[in-house]
Each structure stands twice: as structure tokens, then as C-alpha cells.
Amino acid sequence: MSRVKPSDRSSHERLHPWVERFVEYLRAERGYSEHTVAAYVHDLRLLQAYVAHHGDAWEHLGYAELVGFAGWLAERGYRLSSLLRVLSAVRSFFRFLTEVRVLPENPAAFLAVPRRDRRLPEVLSEADVDRLLEAIPTQSPVGRRDRAIVSLLYATGLRVSELVRLRLDDLDLTEGRLLCRGKGGRVRWLPIGRAARADLEAYLTTVRPRWCRFGRESAVFLNRRGRPLSRVAVWQRLKHWARRAGLAGSVYPHRLRHTFATHLLQRGADLRTVQVLLGHASLGTTEVYTHVHPQRFRTALDRHPLGSWLRRKSPAGDTPPRPAEDPACTPPSED
């Protein structure tokens, strides 16, 4: 059975007034980006298509109808990750309608959304990052711009949406930092390392003035026509250079963000610092990187006073022996 897409049937239909009110709430009160709002609209158009298909009235939607909606999506080939996202949007939508007293009670309150296992982030090694950067020639204007993009993504952990929203006024190259406007209207200052700052300055002084013919465009990263670079274009350029570098697997902007966070932890940064740099509202979101780099915890435990005492008691600083039958007690390497 073919998968139903909102763009096939309902993308040109007017949104239901309840959905329009919810969308305005997401924009005005929650401060969500247009990208996030568009994702909500996409998912709620699916619900609108289902309601129209079954001839139901929105006022009469209940728990049974929403369970039927989930089954309807599953029958049409929606993967679990997509299904969970749609149901999460539906739950938020009906919770809002209840809070503003459009509905007396929330029909989605008991709609169970099964939790999926959190996938570990895919990261590049430091050697892979070096290969990627070295594969980008800086002799051409496009290469110089792309080198600045890749350097900045890796050096700051920016989301690609944050990167393409950067404006010239957001840069403070004298202090080596930039102002990032993140999710939910949150703003944070991010330091720029020396290497990334050098790549960025090279692009800004030799390439961007040539492309910004009329001097009115404030976006940092432009295409050759002088227009702001899109998220899709950044993804395509990164994919191109990763292929040139011979890197295995898919390399995409968010993978550089994962790599940034993981390498920080490997070099001794604490989890709270990584949370702030990534712009995560919750430390729980950042904790996924601890599964990528468990050596960080072994190193931290080795710094415990008991670990220091054991090293002092051991001849020549060697690690004291542990019972062979309990390999879990083997202390970490001192490397």
C-alpha cells in the first residue's frame, strides 16, 4: 500500500482553524523556528487528511479515533521513528487545545507513545576530520567558503540551521567568538578556535566581497549568486567533500556536531560545558555522548582520591593487581 503524504492530497487545503491557532501559538509564544513549525504542520496535515478520509468531526475525535489514526499511518508504511514524531505532534496539539479550553478534555492524554531506543551518535575520528579538511582545496572561492563552513561546524558544534542563519553582526572575530541564535529563541556565545577563525577570515576577506555584489546581504555564507546558502546546499557540499576524502558512511552536518561534542569529552571537557556549547535545554539530551565515550568516566574515576592512593601504594606506580575472577574491577589504563 502506498504511503500517504500530505503533499499528495492535502498540502493545498486550508488548515483547520484549530491547527492554525496552534501554529500561531508555536510561532508567537513558543518562538519556534519556521523549520520546526513546518514539521508540526506536516504532521498535523496527516491528521487532517485522516479526519477527512473517514468523515469524522474534529469535535468528536476521541482516544479510539487517534489509535485508529496511528494504525492508519502504520498500514501506509510509516516507520516507527516517523510514527513517534507524528504522534508526539498530535499529543502537543490536543494538549494545547485543552489548555486554551477549545476542548473540555484531552483525547490524546492516554495515547501511548512507545519509546524508541536512543541511537548512539555517529562520529568521525580526529584523523577523519583532518582528511576531510585537507580534501577541500582553498585555491578556489567555493573551496575556501566550504573549508570555512566545515571548520566552523566542527569547531563550534553549530546546527546547520544555526550556521545558515549567521549574520555578519553575529561575528566578533576580534574576540574570537560568534553569537548563535538557537532553538526556541535561545541565544549563546560560542568561541571560535584559531584554525576555524583563520579559515573564516580568509573567506570573509577574499571570497564573500566578490559574491556580495550589492553589499546588502547580511548572511555570512553566500552562494556564487550572492544569495544566502541554504541548509540543503551545506549538506550537499559536505557530502561532496566527504566523498572526495574517501570517508566511509554518510557525513552530514549534524554528524560534525556529534563529533564536536565527543571530541570535547575525549579531551577532558565536562558534560555541563558541552551542554552549554551545544545549546541543549536539558543535560539529559547531552548525556547520550557519555555512551559514545565511556573512557571519560573511567578517567574520572581514576582521579578519585582512592585511585590516587592505590597508585601511591603500587610499586613503580603500577596498577595494583585485582582478583582475576572479577575483570569488571580492572582499573583503567593510566595512558
Rank of each mutant, 00 (worst) to 15 (best):
A324K: 14
L26H: 06
I192C: 10
V150L: 09
G215H: 06
P141L: 02
R115G: 10
Q139S: 15
H263P: 04
A316H: 14
V51T: 12
R312Y: 14
L61W: 08
A74V: 13
W72G: 00
S81R: 10
A233P: 05
R244D: 10
Y32W: 05
A196S: 04
S282W: 03
R147L: 11
H240W: 09
N223C: 09
Y63E: 15
E126W: 10
D169C: 08
R118F: 11
Y78M: 09
A328S: 12
V41P: 00
S10T: 11
A28F: 00
Y78N: 07
E75W: 07
E65N: 05
L153A: 12
E59S: 01
D56K: 05
G185Y: 10
H263L: 13
E13F: 13
L306K: 11
M1L: 07
N106L: 04
R79H: 04
Q266T: 04
S218L: 12
Y252W: 14
R27H: 03
R244F: 08
R159W: 11
A28D: 10
G77V: 15
R298I: 11
L87I: 01
N223P: 15
L15P: 00
V288F: 00
P228L: 01
R303P: 04
V276P: 05
L124E: 06
D302P: 08
T285D: 04
L158D: 00
A38L: 08
S2I: 12
Q139G: 13
G185F: 09
A108Q: 00
G157K: 00
A38Y: 12
P121M: 03
Y154K: 05
V160H: 01
Q266G: 15
Y63R: 07
P107Y: 03
G249Y: 11
H258R: 07
R227P: 11
S88K: 01
R21T: 07
A155P: 00
A135S: 13
H12C: 09
R216G: 07
L15C: 09
R224V: 12
L283E: 14
Q236H: 14
R79K: 14
L200G: 02
I149H: 00
W58E: 08
C212H: 06
S81E: 13
R255T: 11
L179D: 00
A112I: 13
S92R: 11
A245N: 01
T98N: 01
S218W: 05
H60I: 05
R177Y: 06
A135K: 05
Y78F: 13
L301T: 02
L222F: 01
V90K: 03
P320V: 12
R225M: 15
Y154H: 12
E175S: 15
W189H: 11
A57G: 09
S308W: 09
G31L: 11
V102A: 06
L124Y: 09
L61I: 08
W235H: 08
R186G: 03
A70N: 03
S82K: 07
A198K: 01
R303S: 13
L278H: 02
R119H: 15
P121F: 02
